[in-house]
Amino acid sequence: MSAAAHGEPLTATSYIAHHLTNLKVGSGFWTFHVDTLLVSGFLGLLVFGSLAVLAGRATSGVPRGWQNFFEMVLSFVNQQVKDTYHGNNPLIAPLAITIFVWVFTMNAMDLIPVDFLPLLSQKLSGNEHLPFKFVPTTDPNLTFAMSITVFIIMIYLNFKVKGFGGFMHEVFTVPFGPKLAPVNFLFRVIEDIAKPISLSLRLFGNMYAGEMVFILIGLLGIWQLPLALPWELFHILIITLQAFVFMMLTIVYMSMASESH
């Protein structure tokens, strides 16, 4: 348990609640979760900035060091794209890479001991009650932002590849034929709405639950030591898997959007 030297008595409930509170600015809809925005932005700039620098220096000769590693990761993602997406859109591979790398990095924040960064930020800001969530993927705003962006690209691809008429034809005639057009339309709307919702809630739910377990383990005092490590090791799997699932489903949705039936 952290910060035993608080002025007021620290209960388990307040500890958990404190860990699940975002640092907010603004009010109503125009509230910004500063911690989510800062951490995700910082991580993204760091990882994509270094990727851009590395890519600029990439040689076609023998790759070494980081180039080797990133090439391995990126060609793994690209292989998934190639296997699943048969269209020829230059957006898909970068999109999948961005999702995989960014989500993985943000999820990986979970591996830093659960009290470490919040305590550090409290000490640095001088405010002992400063809430600061360090795993951006436990904020549904982020996961929904990503899935809605994916949804928008998906709709755009539908129009681009099939044309307005083709897309409308598909929406109203698949799967039951033109006679049941309203049913088809309803099915299609439900199907397409379900995509971004399931995409974002899956990531959010997994990361939120994982974070929750870390917080609960953190409540155990000295017993957190033998428990945190196995959960951390197991969590590495979840982190990678969730990043992969988000990426893979995105590719699948894009491929469905680009293929006419």
Binding site: F29, A55, A58, P90, P94, A145
Partner: peptide, 26 residues
């Protein structure tokens, strides 16, 4: 809340970086 919009902007920026500076040269 509005964090959503901010995150969409971040996401778009990172997709753009990957599309322009990361993937093609690699």
């Amino acid at each position: 809340n509005a964090t959503l919009i901010g995150q969409m902007i971040w996401f778009a920026i990172f997709i753009w970086i990957t599309m322009k500076y990361v993937w093609p040269p690699l």
